[in-house]
């Protein structure tokens, strides 16, 4: 990896941005780490994904520890999901070899559009109800 002042400062900026998303939304930051490594440091996709996983560990650890001080972590569920994910990875690796990648990504993208859309609609609905009740009161 070649490090000069520009790439280093860009890497730090992307790191902070990934951490912000992790803290706010509970995602690991891979969504920013992976493209950063591919575009900024010319990593291959697989190297970027593997390195991103390593970078996520301290973020997840410190984030979960911080949230735990407010009792926001449901550890039992987290451990069960972690074990489930290990099985999911094994099954997913089989599927990934059999289906074309572009089709997979499109399907996943559409699932995300539906899920994200549902979250937007439900939150706006709650906001409207709240606003109506405050004006009524």
């Amino acid at each position: 990896m070649h490090l000069d002042a520009t790439t280093l400062s860009l890497a730090i900026a992307c790191g902070v941005a990934a951490g912000l998303l992790a803290g706010l939304f509970g995602v690991g930051g891979g969504i920013i780490f992976v493209p950063t490594l591919v575009i900024l440091f010319s990593f291959h996709q697989l190297d970027a994904q593997a390195t991103s996983l390593a970078a996520i560990i301290p973020v997840a650890l410190i984030g979960a520890w911080r949230q735990n001080t407010e009792h926001l972590v449901y550890w039992r569920g987290a451990v069960i999901m972690g074990i489930g994910a290990a099985f999911g990875v094994l099954i997913g690796a089989e599927f990934a070899l059999r289906l074309p990648e572009a089709t997979l990504s499109r399907v996943f993208g559409m699932v995300l559009l539906v899920v994200g859309g549902e979250m937007i609609i439900s939150s706006i609905r709650t906001l409207k109800v709240k606003r109506a009740s405050t004006t009524a009161a």
Binding site: G15, A17, A22, G23, G29, I56
Partner: peptide, 18 residues
């Protein structure tokens, strides 16, 4: 090395995000 370069500032980010 890359993991440390992007992971360390992310620790700061996660604390701000929370």
């Amino acid at each position: 090395v890359a993991a440390i370069v992007i992971g360390t500032p992310a620790i700061l980010g996660v604390l701000i995000g929370i």
